[in-house]
Protein backbone atom coordinates (compact mmCIF):
# COMPACT_ATOMS: atom_id res chain seq x y z
CA UNK A 1 0.00 0.00 0.00
CA UNK A 2 1.43 3.38 -0.93
CA UNK A 3 1.65 6.31 1.44
CA UNK A 4 -1.20 8.35 -0.02
CA UNK A 5 -3.60 5.48 0.30
CA UNK A 6 -2.47 4.81 3.88
CA UNK A 7 -2.99 8.44 4.79
CA UNK A 8 -6.42 8.37 3.25
CA UNK A 9 -7.38 5.30 5.24
CA UNK A 10 -6.18 6.89 8.47
CA UNK A 11 -8.17 10.03 7.71
CA UNK A 12 -11.32 8.02 6.98
CA UNK A 13 -10.93 6.03 10.20
CA UNK A 14 -10.49 9.18 12.29
CA UNK A 15 -13.50 10.84 10.67
CA UNK A 16 -15.56 7.71 11.20
CA UNK A 17 -14.62 7.54 14.89
CA UNK A 18 -15.51 11.21 15.40
CA UNK A 19 -18.88 10.63 13.77
CA UNK A 20 -19.41 7.71 16.10
CA UNK A 21 -18.68 10.01 19.06
CA UNK A 22 -21.59 12.20 17.99
CA UNK A 23 -23.97 9.26 17.95
CA UNK A 24 -22.88 7.85 21.33
CA UNK A 25 -24.61 10.44 23.58
CA UNK A 26 -27.88 10.08 21.68
CA UNK A 27 -27.81 6.32 22.00
CA UNK A 28 -26.89 6.58 25.69
CA UNK A 29 -29.77 8.94 26.42
CA UNK A 30 -32.18 6.66 24.59
CA UNK A 31 -30.82 3.59 26.35
CA UNK A 32 -31.02 5.20 29.77
CA UNK A 33 -34.56 6.52 29.29
CA UNK A 34 -35.84 3.27 27.84
CA UNK A 35 -34.19 1.15 30.53
CA UNK A 36 -35.63 3.16 33.39
CA UNK A 37 -38.91 4.09 31.79
CA UNK A 38 -39.96 0.96 29.98
CA UNK A 39 -41.54 -0.62 33.08
CA UNK A 40 -43.77 2.41 33.54
CA UNK A 41 -45.38 2.04 30.13
CA UNK A 42 -48.63 0.25 30.82
CA UNK A 43 -52.07 0.72 29.35
CA UNK A 44 -53.14 2.52 32.50
CA UNK A 45 -50.11 4.85 32.33
CA UNK A 46 -51.05 5.92 28.82
CA UNK A 47 -54.81 6.22 29.28
CA UNK A 48 -55.49 7.27 32.87
CA UNK A 49 -55.22 10.55 34.72
CA UNK A 50 -52.69 10.91 37.55
CA UNK A 51 -54.00 9.93 40.98
CA UNK A 52 -52.96 10.17 44.62
CA UNK A 53 -50.68 13.21 44.34
CA UNK A 54 -49.40 12.01 40.93
CA UNK A 55 -47.79 8.99 42.56
CA UNK A 56 -50.21 6.66 40.80
CA UNK A 57 -52.30 6.57 37.66
CA UNK A 58 -51.10 7.79 34.28
CA UNK A 59 -50.26 10.79 32.15
CA UNK A 60 -53.13 10.76 29.67
CA UNK A 61 -54.12 14.44 30.17
CA UNK A 62 -50.52 15.51 29.60
CA UNK A 63 -50.29 13.51 26.36
CA UNK A 64 -53.51 15.07 25.11
CA UNK A 65 -52.29 18.49 26.19
CA UNK A 66 -49.00 18.21 24.32
CA UNK A 67 -50.70 16.89 21.17
CA UNK A 68 -53.15 19.79 21.30
CA UNK A 69 -50.34 22.29 21.82
CA UNK A 70 -48.33 20.93 18.88
CA UNK A 71 -51.40 21.03 16.67
CA UNK A 72 -52.18 24.59 17.75
CA UNK A 73 -48.59 25.67 17.24
CA UNK A 74 -48.56 24.13 13.77
CA UNK A 75 -51.84 25.82 12.84
CA UNK A 76 -50.42 29.25 13.66
CA UNK A 77 -46.76 28.96 12.72
CA UNK A 78 -46.90 26.97 9.46
CA UNK A 79 -48.98 29.34 7.32
CA UNK A 80 -47.36 32.42 8.83
CA UNK A 81 -43.80 31.10 8.54
CA UNK A 82 -44.05 29.58 5.07
CA UNK A 83 -45.92 32.53 3.58
CA UNK A 84 -43.44 35.05 4.99
CA UNK A 85 -40.53 33.01 3.65
CA UNK A 86 -42.19 32.88 0.21
CA UNK A 87 -42.62 36.63 0.34
CA UNK A 88 -39.02 37.23 1.38
CA UNK A 89 -37.51 34.94 -1.27
CA UNK A 90 -39.85 35.27 -4.24
CA UNK A 91 -41.33 38.74 -4.05
CA UNK A 92 -39.43 41.12 -1.77
CA UNK A 93 -36.81 43.36 -3.28
CA UNK A 94 -33.57 43.91 -1.44
CA UNK A 95 -34.43 47.04 0.52
CA UNK A 96 -33.54 48.32 3.95
CA UNK A 97 -36.95 47.14 5.14
CA UNK A 98 -36.53 43.51 4.00
CA UNK A 99 -33.00 43.44 5.37
CA UNK A 100 -34.39 44.54 8.71
CA UNK A 101 -36.94 41.71 8.56
CA UNK A 102 -34.28 39.14 7.72
CA UNK A 103 -32.06 40.40 10.54
CA UNK A 104 -34.96 40.19 13.01
CA UNK A 105 -35.73 36.63 11.95
CA UNK A 106 -32.15 35.59 12.59
CA UNK A 107 -32.08 37.37 15.95
CA UNK A 108 -35.41 35.93 17.04
CA UNK A 109 -33.98 32.42 16.87
CA UNK A 110 -31.36 33.40 19.43
CA UNK A 111 -33.82 34.51 22.14
CA UNK A 112 -34.04 32.18 25.16
CA UNK A 113 -37.32 30.32 25.43
CA UNK A 114 -38.14 31.71 28.89
CA UNK A 115 -38.22 35.19 27.33
CA UNK A 116 -40.82 33.96 24.85
CA UNK A 117 -42.72 32.60 27.84
CA UNK A 118 -42.74 35.95 29.59
CA UNK A 119 -43.62 37.73 26.36
CA UNK A 120 -46.53 35.34 25.73
CA UNK A 121 -47.70 35.81 29.29
CA UNK A 122 -47.73 39.61 29.04
CA UNK A 123 -49.20 39.83 25.55
CA UNK A 124 -51.63 36.93 25.24
CA UNK A 125 -52.51 35.97 28.81
CA UNK A 126 -52.70 39.41 30.40
CA UNK A 127 -53.04 42.08 27.73
CA UNK A 128 -55.26 40.17 25.29
CA UNK A 129 -57.11 38.54 28.21
CA UNK A 130 -56.84 34.99 26.91
CA UNK A 131 -55.85 33.78 30.38
CA UNK A 132 -53.62 30.76 30.71
CA UNK A 133 -55.06 28.71 27.87
CA UNK A 134 -54.28 26.38 24.98
CA UNK A 135 -54.70 29.37 22.66
CA UNK A 136 -52.17 31.51 24.51
CA UNK A 137 -49.72 28.61 24.84
CA UNK A 138 -49.98 27.66 21.15
CA UNK A 139 -49.46 31.27 20.08
CA UNK A 140 -46.40 31.60 22.31
CA UNK A 141 -44.91 28.37 20.99
CA UNK A 142 -45.77 29.43 17.44
CA UNK A 143 -43.86 32.68 17.79
CA UNK A 144 -40.92 30.74 19.17
CA UNK A 145 -41.01 28.31 16.20
CA UNK A 146 -41.38 31.00 13.54
CA UNK A 147 -37.71 31.92 13.04
CA UNK A 148 -36.62 28.35 12.41
CA UNK A 149 -39.54 27.68 10.07
CA UNK A 150 -38.90 30.90 8.15
CA UNK A 151 -35.15 30.26 7.89
CA UNK A 152 -35.60 26.64 6.80
CA UNK A 153 -38.25 27.54 4.23
CA UNK A 154 -36.12 30.40 2.92
CA UNK A 155 -33.17 28.11 2.44
CA UNK A 156 -35.28 25.42 0.80
CA UNK A 157 -36.73 27.97 -1.63
CA UNK A 158 -33.34 29.48 -2.40
CA UNK A 159 -31.99 25.99 -3.16
CA UNK A 160 -34.46 25.59 -6.05
CA UNK A 161 -32.50 26.47 -9.23
CA UNK A 162 -33.24 29.92 -10.64
CA UNK A 163 -33.63 28.25 -14.04
CA UNK A 164 -36.94 26.65 -13.03
CA UNK A 165 -38.37 30.08 -12.33
CA UNK A 166 -37.07 31.40 -15.65
CA UNK A 167 -38.59 28.48 -17.56
CA UNK A 168 -41.92 28.96 -15.88
CA UNK A 169 -42.00 32.74 -16.29
CA UNK A 170 -40.82 32.51 -19.90
CA UNK A 171 -43.80 30.27 -20.64
CA UNK A 172 -46.07 33.08 -19.52
CA UNK A 173 -46.81 31.88 -15.99
CA UNK A 174 -47.44 34.55 -13.38
CA UNK A 175 -45.17 34.85 -10.38
CA UNK A 176 -47.61 33.05 -8.10
CA UNK A 177 -48.17 30.22 -10.62
CA UNK A 178 -44.40 29.88 -10.83
CA UNK A 179 -44.02 29.69 -7.07
CA UNK A 180 -46.89 27.23 -6.72
CA UNK A 181 -46.01 24.77 -9.46
CA UNK A 182 -42.32 25.27 -10.21
CA UNK A 183 -40.72 26.21 -6.90
CA UNK A 184 -42.74 24.94 -3.92
CA UNK A 185 -42.92 21.29 -5.05
CA UNK A 186 -39.13 21.12 -5.09
CA UNK A 187 -38.76 22.97 -1.79
CA UNK A 188 -41.26 20.91 0.23
CA UNK A 189 -38.78 18.28 1.51
CA UNK A 190 -36.55 21.03 2.92
CA UNK A 191 -39.51 22.90 4.37
CA UNK A 192 -40.73 19.72 6.08
CA UNK A 193 -37.36 19.08 7.68
CA UNK A 194 -37.14 22.56 9.17
CA UNK A 195 -40.75 22.55 10.27
CA UNK A 196 -40.55 19.24 12.09
CA UNK A 197 -37.32 20.28 13.72
CA UNK A 198 -38.86 23.41 15.15
CA UNK A 199 -42.12 21.69 16.13
CA UNK A 200 -40.14 18.97 17.92
CA UNK A 201 -38.42 21.68 19.89
CA UNK A 202 -41.76 23.31 20.66
CA UNK A 203 -43.16 19.97 21.86
CA UNK A 204 -40.36 19.60 24.39
CA UNK A 205 -40.21 23.17 25.70
CA UNK A 206 -41.22 23.92 29.28
CA UNK A 207 -40.40 27.59 29.70
CA UNK A 208 -42.76 29.09 27.11
CA UNK A 209 -45.76 27.13 28.42
CA UNK A 210 -44.96 27.66 32.09
CA UNK A 211 -47.03 30.85 32.48
CA UNK A 212 -49.19 30.59 29.38
CA UNK A 213 -50.95 27.25 29.49
CA UNK A 214 -49.45 24.45 31.56
CA UNK A 215 -51.43 23.19 34.55
CA UNK A 216 -49.73 21.69 37.58
CA UNK A 217 -52.46 19.12 38.11
CA UNK A 218 -55.61 18.99 36.00
CA UNK A 219 -56.90 15.47 35.55
CA UNK A 220 -59.88 16.36 33.33
CA UNK A 221 -59.51 17.00 29.62
CA UNK A 222 -59.88 20.53 28.22
CA UNK A 223 -63.25 21.52 26.80
CA UNK A 224 -62.18 24.50 24.68
CA UNK A 225 -59.19 26.47 23.46
CA UNK A 226 -59.50 28.66 26.52
CA UNK A 227 -58.86 25.87 29.01
CA UNK A 228 -55.58 25.07 30.65
CA UNK A 229 -53.98 21.69 29.99
CA UNK A 230 -51.22 19.59 31.40
CA UNK A 231 -48.27 19.08 29.09
CA UNK A 232 -45.62 16.37 29.03
CA UNK A 233 -42.47 18.47 29.54
CA UNK A 234 -43.97 20.48 32.39
CA UNK A 235 -45.46 17.34 33.98
CA UNK A 236 -42.03 15.75 33.81
CA UNK A 237 -40.55 18.77 35.56
CA UNK A 238 -43.27 18.71 38.20
CA UNK A 239 -43.03 15.02 39.09
CA UNK A 240 -39.24 15.07 39.06
CA UNK A 241 -38.71 18.13 41.24
CA UNK A 242 -41.91 19.49 42.79
CA UNK A 243 -43.73 16.43 44.12
CA UNK A 244 -41.96 14.14 46.59
CA UNK A 245 -41.92 10.38 46.34
CA UNK A 246 -43.06 9.95 42.74
CA UNK A 247 -41.63 6.64 41.46
CA UNK A 248 -38.56 7.24 39.29
CA UNK A 249 -39.96 5.10 36.51
CA UNK A 250 -42.85 7.57 36.12
CA UNK A 251 -40.43 10.36 35.23
CA UNK A 252 -38.57 8.23 32.74
CA UNK A 253 -41.82 6.84 31.37
CA UNK A 254 -43.06 10.40 30.76
CA UNK A 255 -39.79 11.25 29.04
CA UNK A 256 -40.05 8.13 26.91
CA UNK A 257 -43.56 9.07 25.78
CA UNK A 258 -42.37 12.56 24.87
CA UNK A 259 -39.45 11.15 22.85
CA UNK A 260 -41.79 8.68 21.14
CA UNK A 261 -44.18 11.51 20.23
CA UNK A 262 -41.37 13.54 18.66
CA UNK A 263 -40.09 10.45 16.81
CA UNK A 264 -43.59 9.84 15.49
CA UNK A 265 -43.64 13.38 14.08
CA UNK A 266 -40.29 12.77 12.44
CA UNK A 267 -41.56 9.52 10.98
CA UNK A 268 -44.57 11.25 9.45
CA UNK A 269 -42.30 13.88 7.91
CA UNK A 270 -39.99 11.19 6.49
CA UNK A 271 -42.96 9.46 4.87
CA UNK A 272 -44.22 12.78 3.48
CA UNK A 273 -40.75 13.62 2.15
CA UNK A 274 -40.46 10.27 0.41
CA UNK A 275 -43.88 10.84 -1.10
CA UNK A 276 -42.88 14.23 -2.52
CA UNK A 277 -39.50 12.95 -3.73
CA UNK A 278 -41.22 10.22 -5.71
CA UNK A 279 -43.22 12.82 -7.57
CA UNK A 280 -40.23 14.68 -8.94
CA UNK A 281 -37.66 13.13 -11.20
CA UNK A 282 -34.17 14.49 -11.41
Amino acid sequence: MNRAKLRQNIAFTVLGLITLLVVVPILLVLYYVIRHGWNAITWEFLTAAPRNGMKEGGIYPAIVGTVLLITGTMAFSLPLGILSAIYLVEYARDTLFTRLIKLSVVNLSGIPSIVYGLFGFTLFVVFMRMGASILAGSLTLAIMSLPVIITATKEALEAVPMVYREISLSLGATRWQTVRSCVLPYAIPGILTGTVLSLSRAAGETAPILFTVAAFYLPRLPRSMFDQVMALPYHLYVISTQVPNVPEKFSFGTGLVLIALVCLMNLVSIILRAHFRKKKQW
Partner: peptide, 13 residues
Protein backbone atom coordinates in the same frame (compact mmCIF):
# COMPACT_ATOMS: atom_id res chain seq x y z
CA UNK B 1 -41.47 32.51 -26.28
CA UNK B 2 -37.78 31.82 -25.69
CA UNK B 3 -35.37 28.90 -26.08
CA UNK B 4 -32.40 29.16 -23.71
CA UNK B 5 -28.76 28.52 -24.53
CA UNK B 6 -28.48 25.32 -22.54
CA UNK B 7 -31.44 22.96 -22.86
CA UNK B 8 -33.43 23.74 -19.74
CA UNK B 9 -35.99 21.10 -18.86
CA UNK B 10 -37.99 20.83 -15.67
CA UNK B 11 -37.27 17.68 -13.63
CA UNK B 12 -40.59 16.11 -14.58
CA UNK B 13 -41.70 13.88 -17.43
Amino acid sequence: GIIFAMPQVLPVS
